[in-house]
Structures are given as C-alpha cells and as structure tokens.
Amino acid sequence: MTATATPRHLTRVDAINWNRLQDEKDLEVWNRLTANFWLPEKVPLSNDVSAWNTLTEQEQTLTIRVFTGLTLLDTIQGTIGAPTLIEDAVTPHEEAVFTNISFMESVHARSYSSIFSTLCATRDVDDAYRWSEENPHLQNKAELILNRYRMDDPLMRKVASVFLESFLFYSGFYLPMYWASRGKLTNTADLIRLIIRDEAVHGYYIGYKFQQALARESAERQQEIKDATFDLLLELYDNEVHYTESLYDDVGLTEEVKAFLHYNANKALMNLGYEPLFPGATEAVNPAILAALSPGAEENHDFFSGSGSSYVIGRSERTEDEDWAF
C-alpha cells in the first residue's frame, strides 16, 4: 500500500469493491478468516463428560473460572474492541475484516457457554460468573484494556487489542492445553484450539495495521508509542501474574503458567513489530503444552478426541436420482 497522504478514518460510506484493493492483506486475511469459520456445535463436547467427572471439585472450579475469564475478554473484544477498530479503519475492506473479527469473538464467547451447558452444573457456573465479577485482577485487566479503547488514539487502541488477542488470553488457554496433554477434556481442547487459531490471525492482522499506521508517524511519535506500548505490557503483565496466582496457586501450576505468559507476551510484541522482551521464553515453556498447542505433522488428529484438531467444513455434492429412490 502506498500512502500519499496520512489516511484518516473513512468519512463516508462507499459501496465496497473487493476487486479494487488498496491493501492486498485485507483480502488475504478475509479469505483466511472466512475459511477458518466454525461454530461450537460442530465440536462433540459431550464426549468430554466422563473426563470432566474425573476432575476433582477444585479442578472443576478452576476450569470454570478460567473459562468465565476468557468469556469476559471475548465479550469485550466482540462488542467493544473490534467495533472500535472498525471506526479506525482506513480502507473499506479493513472495516469488513473487523466485522468478521467482531462476530467471531462473539462466537468464541458463546462457545464457553456451550462447554458449560454440556459439562457443568448451572449453580457452579453461576458461582464462577460471580467470582469473575469479584476478582479484582480480572476486572483490572478488563479496565486496563477498556481504558485504551476509550482513548482517542487509534494506535494505542490497536496496541491494546493485540495485547488482548495475543497475550491476555493465554493465562486461560494454558489450562485446556494442560488437560489435553494429560488426555483430559480433549474435545474441549479442540474447540479452544479453534479459538487460538482465530486469535493468531486477529493479532497478526491488527498488529500489521498498527505497524503500517506507525510507519507514517514522526520519529518522536513512534518513540512515544513504543514507550507507551511497553509500559502497558508491563502493567498488564504485572496484573496477569496476580491473576495467574489467584487461579493456579492452589493447584501448584503458577510458575508453569508464568512461563507460558512470557512466551505469549513475546509473540504479542512481535505482532506489533517489536523485539521479544523475555529471553529464552519459548524454550522455557513446558514442552507438553507446546505439543498440545501444535501437534506434530503426523498427528494432527488427537487419537482420543472425537473431532480432531483440524475442523473441516462439510462439502456438498450433487444429488443423484438414486438418492431419491426410497
């Protein structure tokens, strides 16, 4: 994209023409996102009921709390984050991509409720929602992000959005990957992997748009944004450590989750075009978690799960006369 003047928000609505692109990345990402479309109903979550019953009460409570925390983030991103980014879009195609991102975040938020209704007792879920409203670190995390979304700075809105998509989810995503590495809740893990895949494309795309916009700014402004970005990351990280402790201390997993946080903080920074902050973070992640996240080439189907980690949309075929010979 060659920008001759500083692009402003779109001031009028023109009929979108996908055959005239200002930025090829918009079409590429649109195609990737639409090809990745999925719904929770396609994942056979009920196959996890017996595994769910093998978890201790403490482990069940932890799992429900983790998923309510994720639900809150997806709700923010679907109803406030992505719609805010639509307003900041500089091409009509970018607007369209953000409508997709917005909707998929709502699909993600809806998915956790599918998990709850399949596996959990209503009372336990209600308790967890209450917990999520009262957990100061979860509420602080939401507030730190919402704060940036309310600021009149499109660059910092993108930064906050990438941190949400590429960093803040991972204290939660850790747990289903941990269960999957132990052969538990493997269908739930399949569903979470679909969310994780979407978040990667979202973080990549928003980060790309951020880098493009940043490149048009003065050196002073670039430095100012870089400083504000690292300040926000450290503030979020500090809060995330407390949030992690409030969830995982009881089961003794806090240190492992923190290693996973470092790894994903690095990836969030890279999505924004900055160098990783935590040295050796990838190597410090429990290999079982990385393997659960990204199974090897030969084993893209989890032997124990009912659906496999690669979700396939059904293909249609023409009916033949014989199909109707009842």
Partner: peptide
C-alpha cells in the same frame, strides 16, 4: 509460522 495454527505450524516449510 505460529504454533497457534496447531498442526499447520510451519506447514509450507514441511
């Protein structure tokens, strides 16, 4: 690539 893509991590390279 990105490990978030699961089994497709670095697939083009493979």
């Amino acid at each position: 690539g990105n490990t978030n893509f699961g089994a497709a991590f670095g697939l083009a390279g493979r």
